[in-house]
Design a protein around this nucleic acid. Structure first.
Lengths: 207, 207, 207, 207
DNA sequence: AAGTAACCGAGACGGTACGTCTCGTCTTCTA
DNA sequence: TAGAAGACGAGACGTACCGTCTCGGTTACTT
């Protein structure tokens, strides 16, 4: 009968959008995701509630966009190229992977990222649609970078050419996420190094 | 002034406890964790709300206990020994791991387990205390089983004795959980097999 | 500092004014005053909200003007003279009052007038300023007509010359409005006749 | 499908009921009916919103009950008999009516009663159901008292036995309410006296 | 004919209140 | 005295409108 009344994006207030992102990330960091409310975000952002509901369907969606925005700004700041950076390729696969996993460890230990990342992981775990958005926007591109680097190593004869690069990527990223998620151990550079070493070397006894 | 009024556990109604577990698991499976409410559990269990709040501090705690109860009953049903079963040890590490990981894949694909497991993972991700309980009660024992089996293989000369068994365990379990959690690919027996193979073999090119 | 920005009435869109009146009266009749909103009026009239707020301070003010416009058009239609018609004077006070009160009864029974009249009476009851406007624009002139007619009757020796014509007017109009307002009985021609009769005759027993 | 969940009146909190009445009457007197909100009543009464919505369907219904409670307490305070007092009967109809109408005038001039009475009259004017409740609970009984007293006068030969007592009542009450409602003149004891005089005497010229 | 002022439709904005839902506590009655 | 039932204070939910504001576009008066 009555369609959802799609708002006119061209007249959207950029000021409000930024304020909402800042408020959302701030609140999630300070009081946690569960205690963060849409009313609280609106109030801290100095914005009407309807301005949030006009553009996002849920608290989780707001946080996802805030997080993507944060990640995009961080990436822009770090690398010159906006996003197609690619993993470093010094010719030494193990060394390159150590660098990248150490950086990942640092990020997961940064409390500025920890709270929103956990909130989104948790929400995406339960809400398939949100999880798909999160995965598509952030996770998949990152996994692709790993796979690309591994394929390059295979082409260079530095890695087993029969291995599935995607699976190998999971071998590196999966344990890290598992330990972070379930807090089953400390996330350190040493851990990252050991992980790279074992994933490359395998368990099979050397002759 | 007034202590928390610890109730007398000896007079507790086992009937209510079971009904609450069934109601909680049922509701989480049917309508999802977010839409499951304490009032809803109490109503379906034919129980007063206070009977829930008397024994559990939160919805998540109820679900955790319900889940542990479910897992305990399932284990009892499956293995003769109540919990100290240990992984199978046929002498062939790879074969044994394939069996176990295939079983894990099956469990994660079982919708009866999927919803509550996701709910608890999500809640534990955000709530450190609950996560710790979940990890301690279920995850750590399971990881220990893997580590034990790997150590046995090391002792038998079938696995690299220098490798950290705990890290090797994560190499097997982490990717599986990662893929399940983020739905980045299908969870199949073939995947379990490939994972075991690569984790044991490593990426380093064979001479 | 910044004055209220008085708009230029000469450039006002007559088309919009009419559409707003029609929409306002239509909505009040169809969904009631409480559920009539400024946004609803604007939308039905095909008009921007600001066009309403530019010319009226409130929903009630819009409806009052719409009602006055309706009454003016109705009067123009009925009597040749635009407004100074005066009550009929056939020489028989009772007969003339019966005619007029019967007409009033008919109007109050007309659903086209009932809803907006009730809405304005209610709003004016609570909001003194609006009530004053309503009274001054419609009620007082009407009461004056009655008083004039009664004074004429007094001058002609057909009515007690000591009576206060204004009070006598209220004796006729008050009961009618009371019954209409509180729905304490049916509003019929017979009622109008009986009211005129008793008001003229009084309760005092005849000798 | 799902019935309205009728609450158990026997467990109702009398304390909350009283607090809600006091808050409602206080707010209507202080800030007016339009600016009185359910949230405001709840907040001032120290009560959850749901406690209001559990027992009343609307702000107007709350106010009506508060008003009826107020009237009941006032009546109890004034007359010994809880409600069946009846109008005074000194044998002189005019004198008795003057006393009663003067009292009515005083009440309508009392700001403590004015605001809620106007609010209820306005709301009842627009909302037929509420108006019917108001009329049945307060207005009709009061009108009955007048009619009874007039009938007594008729029986005693002090009033025209052919007159309709109900209509005669409206002749007395209608003008008063009309003047109060539309603020078309001052409400004084002199006005009450003149009204009684004219209503009893009628307009017909004395011989 | 070009310039310019202002009204116009449209609708996003910061807000307030709505009526509903659920929380966790408290109270009452029953077994 | 544990438990079923459910009323309570509290407060967030998502929606509906409020009255203000800004945005092109369209008239209708300058110049």
């Amino acid at each position: 009968m009555s369609e959802p009344r799609i708002p006119d994006a061209s007249r959207r207030s950029e000021r409000s959008r930024r304020a909402i992102f800042d408020a959302a990330l701030g609140l999630v960091s300070e009081v946690g995701y569960a205690k963060t409310t849409v009313e609280g975000i609106a109030s801290r952002a100095g914005v009407g509630k309807q301005t949030i509901y006009r553009w996002w369907p849920s608290k989780a969606a707001v946080l996802l966009d805030a997080y993507l925005d944060l990640a995009a700004r961080a990436a822009e700041e770090a690398g010159a190229a906006p996003g197609q950076a690619g993993l470093p390729d010094s010719g030494d696969l193990a060394a390159d992977l150590r660098v990248v996993l150490r950086a990942t460890v640092d990020e997961l230990n940064d409390p500025r990222y920890d709270a929103p990342t956990r909130a989104l992981a948790a929400e995406g775990c339960t809400d398939p649609e949100l999880g798909a958005r999160f995965t598509a926007a952030l996770l998949t591109p990152q996994l692709e970078l790993f796979a690309r680097r591994i394929e390059a190593a295979q082409a260079a004869g530095q890695a087993d050419p029969d291995a599935d690069a995607r699976l190998a990527t999971e071998l590196l990223v999966g344990p890290l996420h598992h330990r972070w998620m379930h807090r089953t151990g400390p996330l350190t550079h040493a851990y990252a190094d050991a992980l790279v070493d074992l994933a490359l070397r395998g368990l099979t006894p050397r002759p």
